[in-house]
Design a protein around this nucleic acid. Structure first.
Lengths: 350, 350
DNA sequence: CTGAAAGCGCTTACAG
DNA sequence: CTGAAAGCGCTTACAG
């Protein structure tokens, strides 16, 4: 990966000069050793006279000294960076939340996050090597949607935590949304609102869908209520955004059936949007005739629907924050699977 | 910013050992000097016998050598990183597109992108210093929405390019969407579709809105057609997501007026969604009775509306890509403002 | 409390 | 074509 290009460079002389100031420049000016300067600026606990420390700090400030982390890094063996490898995560609207969670926790520890996309056709090993060249303090792996990920054996030791996915062999601590619990919670909420005839238009062919269906059935069984059925939102067994939607036809069929639902749970907010449209065409009012609830809390969408949509928010930010805490924690815990709770966002559709 | 925590460390012995292999380990094993190893692995043009080069490469491979960029960085004075400072960009759904553009171009040059959020209450100077500690090869500034940014004088030299914003004093090359041109293009498209009575429900109080209105009026004037009017989507003079929507009332008023529109241009896809709802209530068909078009192309939303929404996509990815090309280009051009074209996404609402 | 020196892992002149 | 040495800017034992 040799670099032979000519690059744009910082072209403000003052700004450039600032970045070439070194500890020895400060030491010379202050009449002390480099070690003393290092201690004064970076060594919080290094003992020295307060006078010396203040003097050194003043000179550093005056010269506009900016720490050179690369130099510190070569000494310590690592840079204060946390690498995030993702399977195209960066394209997802949820990515921002995960990264926000990571970033917030990282920065308070003086770390920066750099994300590297695992582009299709590239082996995960080679992406990881790319990341390791920077000698990051820790590495996380993040998935775009909740799934199982097979980490090659040799790499399991290189990744500190998995976000939004489960490491297949259980060798790496994995943080995932509690799909089953989330489904149970929203069903209990619908039951508490007096709804009894509940249908679920689910996302087929993905792990989240499977787990949510379990929660859906469990919560209804708990209340001794028969589910009105679970219907796939799209025809294809593997969920895809491009698959033709079956939502409208399911809604029409449900309305035409003897058992008209009084609540429809949706696999995500987009499905809910289609349900809204189908119900509007049929002249059904939300929530008076039929309550609608879903998963995702895509704010842009959910808050703008009429009525605003009640939906279970995914714990993306929390996963990011917790991931960073685990990475930066003193004592590594043994690998485990941690399910993080959804968060109910009450609006007006129930 | 001294770090005194204990961190999680890579706990796979093989993986950890890999990262401590240095050029001198390889040199020793190969019976050559460190310089030769460096040349063989990283110096594409360094002349040496093919035999030596192959032998060195084989040994590096065998030992699992991973380049230490921190060490190279301390020697060269910079790390192969590009810093992106943003004003909370990371929260925006468009951020991902900008970062994708940056990342793609960066990685083909062997660079990684690290984004640092400019949190509220933090001076831009201190964020920039935080970034400069990593001695990145270049720094970009990105804004969440199209606006003017005042860069303190001393910092103008530290930032190579502004993305989605204009540096107020014109000292830094700035990349922005061509709002005026985008508005002109969509209006021409509506005119070509035979629409003549066109209203614009615009986003008030933001730069994009002002510029789009100019384009809207210019394109209609060009065709000697009188605009049906420009209406603000929200009441507040400063645009905000929380401001109460005026969209429905504007639509109702337009429909009730003598001059019923045959097309409504919307400030963004969410406004369009509200227009859809208002038109549905009034029994108007899209596009038969009234065509609807907008700006943003929030795919999740636009493609799921019924009918799918025709909308102008913002050049976020292109801005990111071009920004990186400018940063990594050999010859820095003099600072200038570059307007990038929108892209018409034809769906079924016109 | 402070200094002089060694060393982190690279790359870059300088010699042969 | 290859080597030995110096040096990048830090931090960390080792001495005083």
């Amino acid at each position: 990966m040799a670099i032979y290009l000519e690059y744009w460079v910082i072209d403000n002389p003052t700004e450039r000069a600032k970045l070439t100031i070194s500890l020895s420049d400060i030491a010379e000016r202050a009449g002390v050793s480099v070690k003393t300067v290092s201690g004064a600026l970076h060594g919080g606990s290094a003992r020295m006279s307060d006078e010396t420390r203040q003097k050194v700090k003043a000179i550093a400030e005056e010269l506009g000294y900016v720490t050179n982390l690369a130099a510190r890094g070569v000494r310590q063996g690592w840079l204060p960076l946390v690498g995030v490898v993702s399977d195209g995560l960066i394209t997802s609207p949820f990515a921002t939340e995960i990264v926000r969670g990571l970033d917030g926790a990282a920065r308070s520890a003086g770390m920066a996050v750099f994300a590297v996309n695992h582009s299709t056709g590239q082996s995960i090993g080679s992406v990881l090597d790319e990341v390791q060249q920077f000698r990051p303090r820790a590495v996380a792996y993040a998935a775009m949607y909740h799934k199982d990920v097979d980490l090659p054996g040799t790499l399991a030791g290189a990744v500190g935590v998995m976000i939004n996915c489960r490491e297949a062999a259980g060798r790496v601590t994995s943080l995932v949304p509690d799909e089953e619990g989330g489904a149970r919670e929203i069903i209990r909420y619908l039951l508490a609102a007096g709804r009894r005839r509940i249908a679920f238009i689910n996302l087929p062919g993905i792990l989240a869908g499977t787990l949510r269906e379990k929660g859906f059935r469990a919560a209804l069984e708990e209340a001794s209520i028969e589910p009105l059925g679970v219907f796939p939102a799209v025809r294809r067994s593997v969920y895809s955004d491009r698959a033709p939607s079956l939502v409208a036809s399911h809604v029409d069929a449900l309305l035409a059936s003897g058992q008209k639902p009084d609540a429809i749970l949706c696999g995500n907010d987009r499905v809910a949007m289609e349900v809204y449209a189908a119900l509007a065409r049929a002249g059904c009012r939300i929530p008076d005739d039929i309550a609608v609830a879903s998963f995702d809390n895509q704010v842009e969408l959910a808050s703008r629907l009429d009525p605003p949509l009640t939906t279970m928010a995914l714990p993306h930010r929390a996963m990011g924050r917790l991931a960073m805490e685990i990475l930066l924690a003193g004592q590594p815990e043994p690998p485990h699977l941690r399910k993080l709770p959804f968060h109910l966002v009450e609006r007006a559709s129930v």
